[in-house]
Design a protein around this nucleic acid. Structure first.
Lengths: 342, 342
DNA sequence: CTGAAAGCGCTTACAG
DNA sequence: CTGAAAGCGCTTACAG
């Protein structure tokens, strides 16, 4: 491996052409004679020349990077595989389109970090990995008209490119599945109420309860349950109710353990005494005893679609759908299904 | 938000100084009069000027990015939180040092991806997230003398900067803990034998068995068990042995479920009939029933240390220790502990 | 302490 | 189809 960075000038001299010509060959410019093209390519290959990406970026005025902000630590995000799966989906697609992924630790806070990325021309576009009800990041990107795609849903703007599951529909279907197992007293334990998906799932649950003539009981709904401890407590309280729930839906699978603990502590059986259903289909859901019914959200696909969209936007291609839906799957497991034959 | 990118020239004009001066003020150059400094900073703040990172990079001949290659899909890596935790540690530290993290999907393969990062001057340094026994990536970076830090251990070179757990020691201690629980027939189920840590853990296990006068039985050791299915099969076979193991150590916690399944299928009790111990302390280990004894590897810290090291290297600071050890913790839980009082 | 000029390694109108 | 020149937005010897 030669130590010296080899430059376009070296290639030009070796090939006996101008730097412009080399540049044109490499960028696939059409009005170059086949002969010159071949000659140049030969030298390029021989010398192993690769254009300096930074110089290219400066000249072309585009970074060829897509920015992502790492979510805050300690929130539920990080114990889930959502982030890394989505990141994989993004990274693969984006790289096939000639972009890199630039990760910014969201310091000192997400909006500041985003402003820095934009102001310093570090990225051509941004993928936002989650949406709050009031979302400063969305607001900033939207107002500055900077290209971005949201994995999630914006409640403030309807002209934002986004990729999301149908959280309403998923919760609806999940609730329906449980009602179908002859449960009427279904509790709902939700994560942060500042997340759009939490509230969407709540809506789906409520709508389904209502439209099936079951009773919607306020005391069955608990929000902002975002730690295992809080989940344990919330569940314990639910189990004290005179009208004890016979099923529980958990929005945030990372706190499932608290739920399970509480149920066990109360010596109740799953699913006989109480059915349990969750979202995200984490390893924990799958491997739990009994396995927990869950909604699989297909994080990789969410990432892929978001990446495809931002790439299309940046290349000026038309994007047919502003709000892409990625299909979820309801995985019915023993935690909700009665009377399984052994 | 003004649409036009504001440049150093604009600041210079507004402040009535030269571009050089503005540049010097911003880069903290000392030989600038306090007065000019203040004047310039005032304008900078007013205009909200932020230097174009790409132009700076080109002029300074450094990208201010640290490269990371996303591990291949489908391998055990991705179901673990190791990657995302390490990434968080890296990202935080690196950003405090003025660098960004550039993620490369390892396409078409990791070495090619690395070569691209290096050849195109996209990153100043690289953090490698794992180490194989024969590792082309390490070899490439080492031979090209490109700055990098390894999370793991190099078996080929001893002059590589690396950050790792003491995998030998951890396995030794874990094995000792189990021997201390009056088990003599300890099986070992390891992940990919091409990973350094797998083999280090195997060594620690073997050494401990031997030095405690227990019998080292070849049929107790299974390697390359990297899927839940393989784990299930391997465990089932182990349980068929005439001399059935009374304990099992699993190198790769993501396949634990297969082990547990097999044990359950065989109607054996944990820990009475067989003790189970694992590594990585995943959520699954923690929340399993019974909870599984595990080695916590502190992924965030691995990431942090690796980041600190690469930053020191790049800034020319001395790095005292070439091979940094991050402490592990043995978390003894019910899966290995007999006769717990209820 | 400060400025004019050259340079970082590319790209791309412009002209031919 | 090809080249010379200007430019992308900074930094940094060099000179004063």
């Amino acid at each position: 491996m030669s130590n010296k960075q080899i430059k376009i000038r070296d290639v030009a001299m070796a090939a006996g052409v101008s730097e412009s010509t080399v540049s044109r060959v490499l960028s696939g410019n059409k009005r170059i004679s086949e002969k010159t093209r071949q000659k140049v390519m030969k030298i390029v290959d021989e010398m192993g020349y690769r254009p300096n990406a930074i110089a290219t970026s400066l000249a072309r005025n585009r970074s060829n990077s897509i920015g992502i902000v790492i979510p805050d630590s300690d929130n539920e995000f990080y114990s889930t595989t959502f982030f890394q799966e989505a990141l994989r989906g993004i990274s693969t697609v984006v790289s096939d389109n000639g972009y890199d992924v630039l990760i910014s630790s969201g310091r000192p806070d997400e909006v500041t970090a985003l402003k820095e990325l934009v102001a310093r021309c570090k990225v051509d576009g941004v993928i936002l990995m989650r949406s709050h009800i009031k979302d400063q990041s969305i607001r900033f990107l939207h107002e500055s008209k900077f290209p971005f795609v949201l994995i999630g849903t914006s409640v403030e703007y309807d002209d934002v490119y986004s990729v999301d599951n149908d959280n309403f529909g998923a919760a609806f279907e999940l609730t329906k599945h449980i009602l179908g197992q002859n449960r009427r007293n279904i509790a709902f334990i939700g994560g942060g109420s500042n997340f759009v998906y939490t509230m969407e799932r709540l809506r789906g649950y409520e709508k389904c309860i209502e439209s099936n003539g079951a009773e919607l009981r306020k005391e069955y709904v608990r929000l902002d349950i975002d730690t295992v401890r809080k989940a344990y407590e919330a569940m314990s309280e639910l189990l004290q109710l005179k009208r004890r729930p016979d099923a529980v839906i958990i929005t945030d699978d990372t706190v499932c353990a608290g739920i399970m603990d509480s149920i066990r502590q109360n010596k109740l059986n799953i699913p006989d005494d109480i059915a349990v259903a969750s979202f995200n289909d984490s390893l924990y859901n799958r491997l739990s005893i009994p396995p927990i019914t869950s909604i699989s959200v297909n994080s990789i696909e969410l990432g892929r679609k978001a990446a495809e969209t931002i790439c299309r936007i940046l290349s000026g291609d038309s994007v047919d759908i502003k709000n892409i839906r990625v299909d979820f799957r309801l995985l019915a497991r023993d935690s909700t299904i009665l009377n399984r034959l052994p």
